[in-house]
Design a protein around this nucleic acid. Sequence first.
DNA 1: CGTTGAGTTGACCATCGTCAACAGGAGTGG
DNA 2: CCACTCCTGTTGACGATGGTCAACTCAACG
Lengths: 239, 239
Amino acid sequence: MSPAQLNGSCRLGKEVCIDCKVRFMSICSALEAHELPEFDVLIQRANFAPRAALFAQDQPADAVYNLTEGVVRLYKLLPDGRRQIIGFALPGDFLGLAMAERYGFSADAVDTVSACRLAREEFAHYLDAKPHLLRRLHEYTTHELSLAQDQMVLLGRRNAEEKVATFLVNWRDRWARLTGKAVTVPLPMSRQDIADFLGLTIETVSRTFSRLGKDKTILIVPDGIRVLDPQRMERLAAA
Amino acid sequence: MSPAQLNGSCRLGKEVCIDCKVRFMSICSALEAHELPEFDVLIQRANFAPRAALFAQDQPADAVYNLTEGVVRLYKLLPDGRRQIIGFALPGDFLGLAMAERYGFSADAVDTVSACRLAREEFAHYLDAKPHLLRRLHEYTTHELSLAQDQMVLLGRRNAEEKVATFLVNWRDRWARLTGKAVTVPLPMSRQDIADFLGLTIETVSRTFSRLGKDKTILIVPDGIRVLDPQRMERLAAA
DNA sequence: CGTTGAGTTGACCATCGTCAACAGGAGTGG
DNA sequence: CCACTCCTGTTGACGATGGTCAACTCAACG
């Protein structure tokens, strides 16, 4: 499947806002039941294969997305190719906050992704008519800003072990909010993705995982980890 | 003057929104002329001596601030005392975006600071009645988020020289927007502040300044620098 | 089976942090 | 007016954390 070219069998008639599984985790929770049909006509379902691009940095920002399924990595590139992942988006997350002419970062699917696509202009006009939705969006944005500030502390002032532990704890908690608590934490993204998120190299991430594994702090399983010593893990993350 | 204890001779009658020098650089630019008097009654002028705290992380967030004068450092502390400065605020900047129960970071005056203080609850209610102000605030927040994402790239993926150069270029440009272009860029904050903003130590910042000085890329002057080779500077910052 | 790509591990090294000494200016008090 | 302290910033020597380079394993896939 080619990147950014898709949605075959979707839009099966049943995929309407009122049935949306992530409605109450997304900005759509601000909408009243009677507003859902009118919102429905604004959105378009889009599916993305693993590694497909939702959008790319500096492209004209003609759409925003509400993620309903899968994991998306958001990243910025320096001219020489260095990459910083600024976040991983999960179902319920809103992409394209900037509402600028062009995207400030790139977004692509880590695994199979579904999202509601809204034309930016249309969405902006709809927002003008719905102050309660704008208010919800603003709350969401300030929350994102707060997470970004936490990430600055992590990138600027924590060592490799603290970075990895913090990442794993945060990811486990986000995952638990979606699917409930589980012993095994899936890690759909690659080691390279984790490294680029934490400001490390792939080797350092790998070594730190191994060390935490030898510690019996975590157990490394295919495509994920199991937290064996949550106490020690949280202590490392809090430090 | 003791921290967080102040405003003596302020509120001289003339200090009303309509005369505000930074009105068009702040979120107040969203207000119509006829709304200024009603906004005026919500605000309270506050002055802060150098090093005084505007507010501290985890304190109840009972006020937000609109900066009118001076420089404020915003920072987070780790339990063991490591500090990450998440930004420097200048006149026109809005502090307390989170609108949460408690402040997510600390803010204190770098030099002499003046600000408009608004009770958070009152401001929230006023926002409910003024969608255009909310909209402006949302634009401001997304801009801050975008800056935070740039800072993540800087912290995660740039070396010391690039960090320092990027900081100086950005600071020069922000300063120029306030006071017009000038050969000398004042640096009211300490080396320690710069280090904690860039995820470096004070020694590395000092050495990098010295090296850029020996290069003739910059000239180090008391409480500031002069950019001698803007081209080279921008090249380092863009890298 | 051979190839490919992700992940792991080891050896070595560079950048930046740590520790320490020192310089210079501001403020204080004899 | 000078001696003294204090504080910030600079510089040097050394070391540790994490990066670089390379070899290797293993699973997936044709």
